[in-house]
Design a protein around this nucleic acid. Structure first.
Lengths: 120, 120
DNA sequence: CGTATGTGCAACTAAGTGGTTGCACATACC
DNA sequence: GGTATGTGCAACCACTTAGTTGCACATACG
């Protein structure tokens, strides 16, 4: 309460977690695996990787922290499910950034054309 | 040279560097600053941040390593310029991933409709 | 019941990261 | 020439990360 801009700060840290989660090839592979083949457990996922189950659990937890996956217990196993919706935030940032870039390029082009110099 | 998929491996590490570079809010701010306001030096960029020039240099170097910026010496200063083209690779990964996801969702929907059971 | 399988927790290590400081070196300016 | 400004390099620190191992606990199954 009384904290201005809390939402924006959260959005920033959300992007941190998202980009951070995606910055690791194992995590990207896990996420794509879950997206393509459906929910799976850390034990089975680790079987295909040169990693311990515990290491895979930590990677999956990073995905969960970024909002890109959820875990649900079913009997004695824990099934991880991909929830790629937050990728939309990444996409938003990319689009916004490239828009700003394009606008600047346009401004520069206009300026050059206005001065009628080396523009072809 | 007998090594299959070398390019793909490079693409993987490029994504590592790209996502890694973008996972830090300072680096995202620096990149957007360069994109909006044009090339600038580490010293001037550091003036607006609660960071040492050296820290800013390291962040800028991370951007350079990811291919998102270049540095060019001009007299006694070094000007950093945004080169956001590699962001296209990030965009590609996102689009490809969400496409795979969508296809899987479609397959599941088809399957459920085909069985015509508990789908509501 | 007993055994096998899956998970959770904790400790630990090695390496990476973000940041600082101090100082040397190069370039501009009077 | 001398001074100010900008950069580069290296050491150092605190903290995080990726990974391991060991073991306890819970659930399925004969």
């Amino acid at each position: 309460m009384g904290l201005h801009g809390g939402a924006r700060v959260d959005a920033v840290s959300a992007l941190d977690d998202l980009f951070g989660a995606l910055s690791d090839p194992t995590r990207r592979a896990l996420l794509q695996g879950l997206m393509q083949n459906g929910p799976d457990t850390a034990t089975r996922l680790a079987a295909d990787l040169p990693l311990t189950r515990q290491a895979v659990v930590k990677h999956l937890q990073a995905l969960v922290d970024a909002g890109l996956a959820t875990s649900k217990r079913d009997g004695r196993e824990v099934r991880y499910t991909a929830t790629p919706e937050p990728l939309a935030a990444v996409l938003s940032w990319l689009m916004e950034s490239s828009t700003q870039w394009d606008r600047r390029v346009d401004r520069l082009r206009h300026k050059l054309q206005g001065q009628g110099s080396a523009a072809r």
